[in-house]
Each structure stands twice: as structure tokens, then as C-alpha cells.
Amino acid sequence: MSKPEAKLNGSPHGMKTLWPWIAALAGVIVVHFLVTDRLNPYFFTILMYAGVNATLAVSLNLISGFTGQFSMGHAGFMSVGGYVSAFITTSLAASHPDLINDPNLSPFVFGGVLVVAGLFSAFMGYLVGLPSLRLRGDYLAIVTLGFGEIIRVIVLNVDAIGGARGMPNIPELSSFAWVYGVLVVTLFSVWRLIHSRQGREFLAVREDEIAAEAMGVNTTKAKVRAFATGAFFAGVSGALFAHYLRYLNPQTFDFNRSFEVIIMVVLGGLGSLSGSVVAAIFLTVLKEMLRPLQELTKLDFRMVIYSMLLIVLMLTRPNGIFGTKEITSLFKRGRRSSKGGAT
């Protein structure tokens, strides 16, 4: 966590840096038509989960990796987004079915729903962020964990969204293009954010809160902003998840879920966006690969392996696989050293 400035070299402003993102979006759409209804449904499901998890991991990385605030209630934000969006679309499907069923209209409706779900989550993030102003590291972790639990208990007790039975019959509106399109948009937004003035405030808070404050950074505002932004994207990913699985259950968003996301971020590297994506995909696939072993032995090895992984990682490579570096820096190494070893 010591060299944040390394990847801040080279200002990412101007159209030139926009092209890779546009290309990525176009790529997502191309792949969408290649895989939808052609891929084995099981692999397709894994692919969709990987996309949702990657978005989730990137959104948590903004909070934990770039702002240095430990959040253990990320599943809570996800569930807010999921439930809010599912509530809206199921009500719409009941009152205005054509809005949901018309293939020309539904993308716009779903896009709007995603934004609303994200905003709800962001508001929750703001609420959680508020008490966190007075808290540091460990306390914040507990508060966010408590928040996740409170959300779960509230959902369990609200009958309009199914309570403990869960919420069935959510319209299927997610698709490959949506999930991975949102991932690209999330990556782009977070990337631009951390290279902006506000993003640098986040980094300053992470590196040293007191020093940041002395430099005139409003650390409180920076933290709340990071929370709200991270929560926004977590909410959107929850909405995508809900509209792919078509069923929500409070148990889906328990502490283990939050923990999975934390592992993804830590494994990939706190402060590495590409690391989060790689780790999210790796762990989602790993989980499926462990499934046969689990069925064979009738024992759940997954969490044991996850937690071992986390401890060993912390003891041997505390910065995660990528540290704070991005995947692209692998290709840039030669160029950078010719500039005079900016790293």
C-alpha cells in the first residue's frame, strides 16, 4: 500500500484514454451475441455470476482498497439493490406488463431500475458512512457488519418482499450484455474517479488520515463519498443478480456473501481494479470446481479453503496478487523504465 503514486503517472484525460473503454463495451455486445443461448447453460450461469461478482468486488475495492475503509456489509448493499429493483419490476409487471415484456421498452425500464436500485443502495451507503465518520478501522468493520445483519433481519420481517420465504417470479431482464456492460461502466467510473481530485482524496485518506486532514482533505466527506459510490455499484450488481436468478432470499446475502467479496478484493490486491476482476472470476470458477469434491465427500470444503487462503495470503503476500498494480502495468513496464524509472 505504500506506492499509490506509481500508477498515477500519466493523466488519463482526453479522448485517447476513452477508446479502450468504448472498445470494451463494443466487445461485450459482440460476445453477448456469441454466447447467449449458445453456451452450455451451466457455463453461462458461471459466467454471469463471475460478472456480477467482479462488479461487486470492484465496488468494494473502491471502499477498501482505495479509501482504506474496511466494509464487511457489502452483501447488505447488494441486497438493498436487489430487493428494491425486484420490487419495482415485479410491481411493474403486475400493473404495466407491456413495460416489462416489450423487448423494445424493457431495456430502458431495466436501465432506469438499475439506476434507482443503485441510488437506494448509495443512500444506504451514505447512512452507514455517517456514523463511520467517528470510527476507525475495526469499529467501522463491525458497524458495516452490523448493518448487513440489520438489513437481513429487516428483509426477513417485511412481508411485501417475501420475508423469510424469499421473493420469487422476478422478471428475467439481466443478460450477458447488461452484466458485463455494467462491469465495464463500473470499472470506467471507478478508474476515472480515482484519478480525479476526489479520488486522490480517497488515496490520501487511505495512506494517512491525519496527514490528509492536515493537507485540507475533508476526510469525513471523502469516506462517505467512497461508501456511497461503492454502495451504488454494489446495489446495481444486486439488481443484475436478482434479475438473472429471478429469486431472492435473505439468506443469499448473509455474512458469508460479504466475506466472499472481501476475499476477492484482498486476493486480487487492495487497490488493483484488474486484480479484483481476475480474483472474482477465479474464485467464482474455483467455487464451481470445488463442487464435485464437495458432492463426493459431502463436506463443505469451500469455506475452509477460502479462509485458509485468506490467512496464508495475509501472512505471505499481504498486498494480494496484484498489490496496487494494474494488469496493464505488466505491458507498460518497458516503456516506463525508458522514461527514467518512474516506478
Binding site: 477460502y306 479462509s307 485468506l310 490467512i311
Partner: peptide, 14 residues
């Protein structure tokens, strides 16, 4: 500190 905290969570889940 954050590393220590993550380790603690890891030990707990383990």
C-alpha cells in the same frame, strides 16, 4: 491494521 483484521476474520471462518 487492516491485514491483521482480515487475518482475524480468516481465522474465525476457518
Amino acid at each position: 491494521r487492516i491485514n491483521l483484521l482480515i487475518t482475524a476474520v480468516g481465522v474465525s471462518l476457518f
